[in-house]
Amino acid sequence: MTEYLLIIVSAIFVNNIVLAQFLGVCPFLGVSNKLSTATGMSGAVCFVITLATVVTYLINKYFLVPLGLTFLQTIAFILVIAALVQIVEIVLKKISPSLYQALGIFLPLITTNCAVLGVALNVVTKEFTFGDAAHMLNLGEATVYALATSLGYGLAMVLFAGMREQLAMNDVPKSFKGLPIALITVGIMAMAFLGFSGIV
């Protein structure tokens, strides 16, 4: 149980996917102008990252590894993710039109969100140390890790969108307008998150 808690704290705060691992920065900068869109995107990313990690984990374990095809990980995973996003879009449209309205427009963008492929690849290639010994994640841990990581993504995104809404109302020097001031803000946020390092 403590192990899961460690995974969650580490993935959300210590190794925050955007602020410490630099994954999914493009959509992070792209759709964080408004709090409402940021929340929608975070929800969609959460859903897809968790689902994609579980599916790619299983494909890797029961298909690529036994056949000695691990060098095909990149190409297999991106195809699986692209297909998954399509399926999620179709299913969502059918069963929950209201959810589709909220998340729908973000879904096509997610295929090329490197956070999804990044987390999927991390889970199957990297050793983790939560608790004592270093080991590869099992399916349960991988799921929790993916979910926590995407929650970390949501947290960073929502915090940042809140700040950006305030920024937009301020008088920013001309050359700093738009992205530059946003990047500098993220830099300061990343510095704050650095304070979490070492607690796990």
């Binding site: 630099f22 001309k174 530059p180 830099g187």
Partner: peptide, 25 residues
Amino acid sequence: LAFVMAPGAFLVLGYLMVLFNKLAK
């Protein structure tokens, strides 16, 4: 050290972008 860690990446890119905007304009 902050510049080789995560915050430095965002800050350097941000300020270089400012410089680029300034020169390009």
